[in-house]
Nucleic acid binder design. Structure first.
Length: 530
RNA sequence: GGUUCUGUAGCUCAGAGGUAGAGCGUCCGUCUCAUAAGCGGGUAGUCGUGGGUUCGAGCCCCACCAGAACUACCA
């Protein structure tokens, strides 16, 4: 993320606009969960946040898929887009904009943006020449072909020589500007390994790329030549800008860019890195616009160590998964257990083990056992002791005092696993403290004050942990807060969206003495392997 | 072929040149406040292989082996 963003109080983050070729897969769900966690964290610390997601709906593939299903392209897109929105509900994603490339407002933005690039002289009519595989619908490089000009994927067919007119974008012109960008803003592309790929790619020399297609209807016409259709990518990237429009404002570039631009962070899968890290900034340079804060290309997911594919039949259905296990468990596993940036594996046994160990055994049970004791030994109220009475070297306070800033730092650098690990250090220390201090024994010995100090410090540690985990597991955190006697609901943006509340809640000792506690009830029921 | 990344306990991963770490799993012990949860302890690693630099190397250099990504218009 960009350092210069810290003095702005807005934060815009995007997921890819998912291609509506099919219903959402687990990879899309993963990116979107991450985006939601980032958005929730930034909201919590008081920023105005815009979480943008949506669907990319143009292109030949869509047209064909729709035809094959006996529907019009728009009908098809509507159905799939609805499927995405339904999944985001299940996963408790709080998106602010759902941007669809087929919307009329988008067309207006595309036209205006095209005009800017056109005025810069960066679009020209050229010849797209090359070997074309009809089965792939794709131009092939000579060196990739087999003998007798046969496509490696369709060796029984010869490729055809095509020579058609296309509009091109002058990408080559931006080579050195892009290289300067990568140099001056090392975080523009993350993680490091993705950055290296792009640097290598760009250093080989950039060629102009075509931004129009002929013989294709499903898309917007090129404004200066309606016989051509705008290439899907050129149109899709611009939908990030369209998404910035307020719902009731005129669809002009000026309006779209007025509040939220530049976008702080684009979260993407590694498969679409080049479009975001090379084409997109070049397009923006051509249009004379400021550039986004950065692009993060995460890895792919495997299942039991194997690539997922429809033909292998080993895909994970995110809808079924969330129906079976619930949003928080899934969010926790993907955020905590998968190193963000690297490829990650989903293994159901491992998933159940981790989630049970952390959320049920360590965290949930900690709250439950403590509330039980408070009920018995302190009449169901937060013990009447203030945090100042607890020494700074107290095992929980010592961790709690710096936890907030360490976790915030981790979230900021998108190191979600690190954030969770830090929080669980406090949770485990709390379980340990209870065993060491044995409040039940202290109580029998009549050491009421000692009992209260132990229980207060544990409840406060649970509170702090729940607060810091709330971007990842908002439902569980809300439940914990309610059992601690607060009315906080972390899904309600109006309750948590200010920086004063962030400062207060991340401080150790925010739990008010004497607060009436709720009824102890498991906040996370252990999962069974089905 | 070229470029880059990865290879550390059964699993997932941390590891600033100076006596190998965490979580999960597994085994043993143990408290009783609790969601058959908690806590303690044990278990397990030729740190991919072979060289080199260094008083000393998972950590630096070279080679090799294995896996992965990128190498332009598929979203």
């Amino acid at each position: 993320m960009n350092d210069s963003d810290t003095n702005k109080n807005t934060f815009a983050v995007t997921t890819p606009l998912y291609y509506v070729n099919d219903l959402p897969h687990i990879g899309s769900a993963y990116t979107t969960m991450v985006a939601d966690v980032v958005a929730r964290f930034e909201r919590m610390r008081g920023k105005s946040v815009l979480l943008i997601t949506g669907t990319d709906e143009h292109g030949q593939k869509i047209q064909r898929t729709a035809e094959a299903a006996g529907r019009s392209p728009q009908e098809h897109c509507d159905r799939i887009a609805a499927g995405f929105e339904a999944l985001w509900q299940k996963l408790n994603i709080q998106y602010d904009r759902f941007s669809r490339t087929t919307s009329p407002r988008h067309e207006a933005i595309v036209k205006q943006f095209f005009q800017k690039v056109w005025d810069s002289g960066d679009i020209y009519l050229g010849q797209q020449k090359g070997w074309y595989c009809v089965s792939c619908e794709e131009f092939k490089e000579e060196r990739d072909l087999l003998e007798q000009h046969r496509c490696p994927l369709h060796p029984n067919r010869e490729v055809e020589w095509r020579d058609e007119q296309n509009y091109f974008f002058r990408l080559s012109k931006y080579q050195s500007q892009l290289e300067t960008l990568y140099q001056n803003q090392p975080n523009f592309i993350q993680p490091e390994t993705r950055r290296n790929e792009v640097l290598n790619f760009v250093s080989l020399g950039l060629q102009d790329f075509s931004i129009s297609r002929v013989n294709l209807d499903w898309g917007f016409p090129i404004p200066v030549d309606p016989s051509h259709t705008i290439y899907v990518w050129f149109d899709a990237l611009l939908a990030y800008i369209t998404a910035l429009l307020d719902p009731d404002s005129e669809p002009t570039l000026e309006n779209a860019l007025s509040k939220w631009w530049p976008i702080n962070l684009h979260l993407i899968g590694k498969d679409i890195l080049r479009f975001h890290a090379v084409y997109w900034p070049a397009m923006l340079m051509s249009a004379g616009l400021p550039l986004p804060g950065g692009v993060f290309g995460h890895g792919f997911l495997t299942k039991n160590g194997q690539k997922m594919s429809k033909t292998l039949g080993n895909t994970i259905d995110p809808i079924e998964l969330s129906d079976r296990y619930g949003a928080d468990a899934i969010r926790y596993y993907f955020l905590k257990e998968i190193e963000f940036g690297q490829d990650g594996d989903f293994n159901e046994t491992r998933f159940v083990n981790i989630v049970n160990a952390d959320l049920a055994n360590d965290l949930g049970n900690l709250l439950n056992r403590t509330l039980g004791m408070v009920k018995r030994y302190c009449k169901g109220h937060v013990p009447n002791c203030s945090a100042e009475d607890i020494p700074t070297d107290h095992p929980l306070k010592a961790i709690g005092l710096t936890l907030g800033s360490r976790v915030a730092q981790a979230y900021e650098s998108l190191a979600f696993g690190e954030a969770a690990i830090a929080i669980f250090t406090l949770i485990r220390a709390s379980n340990k403290l209870i065993d060491e201090q044995a409040p039940w024994a202290l109580y029998k010995q009549g050491q009421q004050q000692a009992v209260e100090q132990v229980l207060y410090s544990v409840l406060e540690s649970v509170r702090l942990s729940a607060y810091l985990l709330s971007p990842i597991i908002p439902n569980i955190s809300s439940e914990i807060y309610q059992q601690l006697g607060f009315s906080t609901n972390f899904n309600d943006q109006t309750q948590i969206n200010d920086s004063a509340s962030f400062t207060m809640n991340t401080a150790w000792g925010a739990l008010p003495a004497d607060q009436t506690l709720g009824e102890p009830k498991p906040v996370f029921v252990r999962l069974e392997l089905s």
